[in-house]
Amino acid sequence: MGRGRVVVVTGATGGVGRATARAFAARGDSVATLARGEEGLAAVAEEIGSAGGRALPIPVDTADFAALDRAAGEVEEKLGPIDVWVNDAFTSVFGRFTDIEPKEFERVTEVTYLGFVHGTRVALDRMLPRKRGTIVQVGSAMAYRGIPLQTAYSGAKHAIQGFTEALRCELLHDKVPVHVTMVQLPAVNTPQFDWVASRLPHKAQPVPPIYQPEVAARAIVHAADHPKRREYWVGGSTVATMIGDKLAPGILDRYLARTGYRSQQTDQAREQDRRVNLWEPVDDRPGADFGAHGRFDARAKPRSVQLWASRHHGLLGTVGAAAVAGIGALALRRGGD
C-alpha cells in the first residue's frame, strides 16, 4: 500500500503498541496514539516525529465508548480520514481466579475486550460510509488456549477472537470492502509484567520463547498492508497452542497445571507497593515513561521464523506452519507423559 496513511493505535504508550506506532511512523504515516498516560503519550509522540511520521497523542480510556468516539472524531478532524485502526490496549491481573475481585475482573473485561469492541465500532462508523479501511486486532495465543493465572486476559482474548470472526462474516455477507484481521502474539518482552496488577508471590514473567515488541510491530504493519488474510501468527508457540489441544485433548490442561505456575514467575519476590495500571495509568507523571521493552531483553528474540512463514503463506508458509505446529504438539504431548 501507499505511504502517508492515517493510523490509530490504541495502547500506544508501551510495549507492542509503542513499537507499532514507531513502525507506522517510519513509513511516513500519520499516527494517532490513544492511551491514558500523558507522559507516555508525550514520549511516543516525540519518537513518531523522529521516525518521520506525524503524531497526534490523545489521552483516552478505551473502556469509555463516548470518549473513544470523540477521540476518533478528533483524529479525522486533525489528520484526515482514518485508514487503519489498531486495537491493542489492554490491562490484566495475574493470579488465581479466586484471588481476583469481581470488580477487577470486570475492569479487565471492559478494557481488554470491550475496548476492542468500542474501537472497532468507532472505526467502522467512519470506514463503512467510505467503503474502505482496515482494522487490526492484536490477539494472542491465549485467544485459542487459556493458561492458569491469566483467567481474565485469556477470557478477553477468547472473546475478541469470537467477536472478530462473527464480524468478519457480516462484512463478507454485506460485500463491504472494509477489512478486519488479527495478529496472534506469543510471549513478548513488554513492560506489562511490571505494571499489570498481580496476586502472585513472585515477579511475573512471560513464558518462553519470548520475542521483542518490534517483531510484533512488523506483523501488525504487514497485516495492515495485507488485511484480506484473516489472521497472522507470530512465534511458533502461537501455532502450537492453537493446534496442540486439538491433537491431544486434555494433555495440555495437565501440562499447564503442572508447569504454568512456575513458568510465569521469576525467583524474585514481587514488590508489594508498586503502582499498577488496572484503574489508573502508571505512565502519567514526569519520568514515568516505560517505553516498548520490558526487562527481558537478554532472553527476547529479535525475529520470528513463524512470522516469516505466516507472511509468506503459500506452499512454503503452509509447510512451515505445519512443521512448527507439529513440533509444538509433540513437545506438549511429551511434557504430559
Rank of each mutant, 00 (worst) to 15 (best):
L128P: 02
P129T: 05
R130M: 06
R130V: 02
K131I: 02
R132K: 15
R132H: 14
R132S: 15
R132T: 13
G133A: 10
T134N: 07
T134K: 01
T134D: 03
I135K: 10
V136P: 08
V138H: 11
G139S: 01
A141D: 07
A141R: 00
M142W: 00
A143F: 03
A143W: 01
R145K: 14
G146W: 11
G146E: 11
G146Y: 08
G146H: 10
G146A: 14
I147T: 14
I147L: 08
I147W: 07
P148T: 11
P148K: 11
L149C: 07
L149M: 14
Q150W: 09
Q150V: 12
Q150D: 13
T151D: 13
A152I: 09
Y153G: 09
G155R: 02
A156E: 04
K157P: 03
H158P: 03
H158R: 10
Q161C: 03
G162F: 05
G162R: 11
T164Y: 04
T164I: 01
E165N: 03
E165T: 06
R168S: 04
C169E: 11
C169G: 12
C169D: 12
L171H: 07
L171R: 01
L171W: 05
L172H: 14
L172I: 14
D174I: 04
D174E: 15
K175R: 15
K175T: 09
V178Y: 06
V180P: 00
V180E: 02
T181D: 02
M182W: 04
V183D: 04
Q184N: 13
P186I: 02
A187E: 00
A187H: 01
N189L: 01
N189S: 02
N189A: 02
T190Y: 04
T190N: 02
P191S: 04
F193L: 08
F193V: 05
W195T: 11
W195S: 11
V196Y: 10
A197F: 10
A197G: 09
S198Q: 05
S198P: 00
L200D: 14
L200Q: 14
L200F: 11
P201N: 13
P201L: 14
H202I: 00
H202M: 11
A204S: 15
A204N: 10
P206R: 01
V207H: 03
V207G: 01
V207C: 06
V207T: 13
P208V: 05
P209N: 11
I210Q: 06
I210W: 00
E214M: 00
V215K: 03
A216N: 05
